[in-house]
Amino acid sequence: MRFKLIHPLWTHLPAILVFLVTIVFTVMALPLPDSAPVHFDINGQPNGYGSPWISTAILLVLSLFFIILSVVLDELWARQETRKSFNWISLFDEITVSDLCAVQIAYINMLASSTYIFPFPWTTVLPVTAIITALAVALELRRPYRHYEQKLLIEDTCQINDELLKLKQSGQPLVYWESQNPAYAGMLAVIMPALLFIVAIVTWSEMAWLSILMILIGLGLTLTYGGFRTLVTRDSVTVKMGILGIKLLRLKISQITSAEVHAFAPIKDFGGYGIRFNSEMQAYFLNGNRGVKVATAEGKKYLIGSDHPERLAAVISAIVL
């Protein structure tokens, strides 16, 4: 099957436009000085010097990264839409990129003026961000709704139900286990820490505290390797995470009153993936848009993401009832 974007790319045009304008603006200001202030204190007085190319490169690479991230997030949103809704996440790239680019434009202007004082350029940032965001809102409002055909495989649990009934009566120890460990989570736990460690080594001599922070974040990410695991025994339902099997959720079977398959929209309902909350429930998922909603006697609700929600719901229900 050919890959097709559901969320049209033209909704990102304002961000791309301001990005291109900034590149043109920077090119026109060439050559940049070899050495210039690259860091300023709160009053705009320079307190760090270096090549202006470093800050320029950081701003441009970050902008590009935000645009790509926004394309991915918007696509996820569009695929989870059941009717046209205003995708406020689509403004993410416009707001971030116009901020960054306005700062870059003001910075280039400052270099040209050769008075090296740089208070935060509100007078450039605010109007640029306002115009670009307004454009993005207009485009988002005009975005058509496109239906995304989802392959929904509903599992037949007849056989497992028979098996569970027999097991339930036998009183034998039993364990049901499943994992959610999508490829992106594996990459986040391996490639991101590797990148952070490399950057930490490079910046060690200049900013040791930043390196230590990056190493700690990297180590934290490494611990998530292995994704989420759900374990059901006769006594409890447990959700664990990562290498160390950190317990995220543990519900005693006696607490549980019901377990049913629940379909949801990760971005719209919970604003992303991972450990999530909304007004109705607490959720644990890394993948897909279906899971098992578990209700407890105290009136709390939990959503456990699953690649086999029918099976998981059948097992929990069989043990609870």
Binding site: L167, S170, L174, V175, V315
Partner: peptide, 8 residues
């Protein structure tokens, strides 16, 4: 994966 142990 469902695993059980049967004493019998």
């Amino acid at each position: 994966m469902l695993i059980t142990i049967n004493d019998q």
